[in-house]
Amino acid sequence: MASAAVALDRAPVLRTEKLSKTYRTGTVEVRALVDVDFAAMPGEFVVILGPSGSGKSTFLNLVGGLDQASSGKAWFQEHELTALAERGLTRYRRDHVGFIFQFYNLVPSLTAMENVQLVTDIARNPMPAADALAMVGLSDRMKHFPAELSGGEQQRVAIARAIAKRPELLLCDEPTGALDSKTGVMVLEALATVNAELGATTLVITHNAAIREIADRVVHFGNGRIVREERNAVRKPVSSVSW
């Protein structure tokens, strides 16, 4: 498949250095993330694999500005994320990051179109909401409320909402976790299209090892650390994947 040009010669979009997160509940300490060094290049499509509790979601939350690190540093382009306060992180999410979750997290009282408009209302340089929906193949479902859409359609609305701001970074946490294989493939197609057309660096967390072949790079998490990385010489087209 036509891959987005991964600009390996340019500065990374996202970089971390000894990024760590420790949760404390009473006297119990859980080290969810331990000294993670990571970098992602512009346009790169990275799949993150690992068992439950391996630290992959914690990692995504930290680089997405949803949570604060306990130690270590993270940069988005030249901005140090770990130095930002609440307000700065909000700004970062608003302007640069698109999120996609397992359970879609659409606003049930807004139509597909309005869910996307939520983002275009506040983003700095958004694309028209209708264009975002067209990109994920939902032009004919724009007026529908989430309850009137299938799971796959809902997840595609979530993708449209995430990309409408033209994000530099697209973070997906188990985007196909709640979907069957056929629907999941459609969602992955949408993600791959967005990655190719917008050049957004895409990080996809999954349990699903079948997805690894569509990525530029696969990162394996275990016990809060990156245990292994592999790079695919060729990205397989999404249509060849199934589970």
Binding site: E86, L118, V119
Partner: peptide, 14 residues
């Protein structure tokens, strides 16, 4: 709560 948290994730301020 869930919708409001979603909005926060999307970049809406507190």
């Amino acid at each position: 709560a869930r919708e409001l948290a979603s909005l926060r994730v999307l970049g809406f301020s507190r």
